[in-house]
Nucleic acid binder design. Structure first.
Lengths: 135, 135
DNA sequence: CTTTGCACTTGCAAATTGCAAGCAAAATTA
DNA sequence: TAATTTTGCTTGCAATTTGCAAGTGCAAAG
């Protein structure tokens, strides 16, 4: 069950082994930008991830220390997913994905607004958002 | 054959539809950092991509305007793959992946050396490397 | 104490992956 | 000029992964 079969020492390759698929970074996105953090929230996202895939991705993200599970303060029936520091550290990468996509595709208004802030002072934005996510 | 089935307008999702798998960014990496640019070069990389997968990834990267094929100056039998501007624009994203991985995993010496340069002046590094890749 | 909500699990068909072998055109060697 | 090798793929097939639908078990609400 562990990641015993590392393809190489390349950091790009190691990273892709964790979140290199069509879904994992969407979960990170939800936790980072949309503040969606329950299983049901993830299922409700636009891309319509299948429930078994979601469960499997949440597990590997947890196994790799990107997210943690905890009991939701509202109810024991709910599970609250949160980004760990390692997960929060993906923020600069997520921002760069947005900036790349902005150059070549149409973005939704809210994401455009966010990038406007990013461009004013990227480091400041990252610092503020990081502190926000740590709460 | 086109990407008619767009999952959502989210830039993260759109990006992942192009290069969200375990292999595509390794090809970009080879073109970007290792200057490997023939079919055979890609096959020789540490991660040992299967030849049919390589062919399919090269095709979708080309279809999405990330890379272009041209005749190798040395020989008509060889194909030279190059990053387009859209591909070169993935550099900041690739750097952030390296920086993230550096924080949590061991990197090979040459990549560490590169990141040392990056940290001195990220913007300068990107500018220089971008100009290099345009040649 | 029954019904609803939430977080999953299970079963199965369809698609994708990975391995090995094959193939045609160009280049090299004999 | 003919035979061999290199290069960039394609093909066939088994194994794994995905995606869809239905089901399950526990907590909370009515």
């Amino acid at each position: 069950m562990t990641d015993s079969k590392k393809r190489s020492d390349c950091p790009i390759s190691c990273s892709l082994e964790i979140w290199g698929d069509k879904w994992s970074l969407l979960i990170v996105r939800d936790l980072m930008f949309a503040k969606q953090c329950t299983y049901g929230d993830f299922l409700k996202s636009d891309e319509k991830i299948a429930t078994n895939i979601l469960a499997s991705r949440l597990q590997t993200l947890e196994e790799n220390g990107i997210i943690t599970k905890s009991v939701h303060p509202d109810s024991k029936a709910k599970v609250l997913y949160k980004l760990t520091q390692k997960g929060i550290d993906l923020l600069p990468l997520m921002i760069e994905i947005n900036l790349w996509a902005e150059k070549y595709y149409d973005l939704p208004a809210d994401r455009k607004a966010m990038l406007k802030e990013v461009k004013k002072d990227k480091e400041k934005f990252i610092e503020t958002a990081t502190n926000d996510l740590k709460k």
